[in-house]
Write a protein that binds this DNA or RNA. Sequence first.
DNA 1: TCCTAGTTACGTACAGCGTACGTAGTGCGC
DNA 2: GCGCACTACGTACGCTGTACGTAACTAGGA
Lengths: 241, 241
Amino acid sequence: MAGRAAVPEVIWARPERTGRGPKPAFTRADIAAAAVRIADADGLDGVTMRHVATELGCGTMSLYNYVPRKEDLYELMIDAVGAEHEMFEPTGDWRADMLRNAEETRAIMYRHTWVPRLMPGVFGFSPNTLRYLEHCLACLEPLDVPAGTKTELIALLNGVVTTYTGNEIATAERTRSMPWTAEEENAVRMAYLGSQIATGAYPRMTAAFTEQSGPVDLEAVFRRALERVLDAFDPESRQSG
Amino acid sequence: MAGRAAVPEVIWARPERTGRGPKPAFTRADIAAAAVRIADADGLDGVTMRHVATELGCGTMSLYNYVPRKEDLYELMIDAVGAEHEMFEPTGDWRADMLRNAEETRAIMYRHTWVPRLMPGVFGFSPNTLRYLEHCLACLEPLDVPAGTKTELIALLNGVVTTYTGNEIATAERTRSMPWTAEEENAVRMAYLGSQIATGAYPRMTAAFTEQSGPVDLEAVFRRALERVLDAFDPESRQSG
DNA sequence: TCCTAGTTACGTACAGCGTACGTAGTGCGC
DNA sequence: GCGCACTACGTACGCTGTACGTAACTAGGA
């Protein structure tokens, strides 16, 4: 035991105020808000300890009194936007409710485009994350399956929302710090894809790509994916075909 | 137009050899292999331009002759491991074939734990990615749905594989560069979660957590998710309940 | 009431990153 | 055989997260 580095506490287990010493100049909420403001404006890469400290008006290293590691700052940010989830009263129609939850998550992500990039790593049980989980379970009350299946539904649905919305955002945001636009980049990629398909090396892809006409409706693709996932858990849907 | 920065070519559109000047000392495959070796051994964060150059035995900046941006190095890496996919002869049972594809992707990710971290950003159409897509379409030949639905199936399935396997790997690898183990960290997190649930603020979560006994079988959870997704596209399954 | 220990605040410093730029050497195409 | 596109690579810049040391502050215990 002696000399072993202690495992750091989860930040939520850390009390904001310990009682001794000078009064902290900021609350955790202040810091989270500042970081979120920066991320919204400059992207996630703009969120540096220095930048956040400047935004708060304090020295860089002072931040470390509140946030032991940068990762914890991320957790604060995720929790902060988690508060934007509307925890509405369940209607009794679990499908509609979960659909609404998913669309809301998607909307939050479009409002804060850095969220999907943080999601896979930051899975911590922040207060608002727990509240959202509880809310989802409340929406799923009418669904007659074991509790374990419900959590699996929530996980799968959240994963799909994050993946789809995250991909859309990533392609749009990739060029944020670059001297060309997302459209230009996409055109180059598509031109290359076209040239590859034109070689005839991928006949089935050729068929798939020539079939569709016009641009892809990402919103529609997203919604179809959600419906499919919900279908897979819906006893009604599976009997009626 | 004048003075505008040109959109950089996709790296696959760049010829490896232009004909003029000294012979390149390495091939793209050499570089990809070196980067993959490092990532496997030291994790993705070990893959730095300096490190890869050292592994190859050349100066750091020489690498930029082959790989204009680090992002392109990532694309090389993804393509390299894409070669590990076995493009088997479709059996006629599309469900079984797609399940096999998914399990293979999962296996590749466990062999190269950095792959999921790269997937969301690097969606490029590398040669091996295209070959894999074509292979999936071949497996889906027996499924009687529009080609667009098939690509949506592939996307959804791949997304689920990446999300689930990526999450598992992330929790296990998070502590790679830290002085404590993943088990210790997980214990701390779970202790906190337990303390939160014990407050009674999340009654439905309490029920869900007390219901299950013993550790979660991640492999089983993963496989159930795959089955659900496939169900959602399977006409047979939806009629027979 | 005063002392002291635990905090807060923050400047300095370090190791590491991606990569812009300049220069020197090489060998193919004209 | 000349010229130029290419390879090679050292140096340098601006940026990152954060370890560490020091000074100021304040609440709890004597």
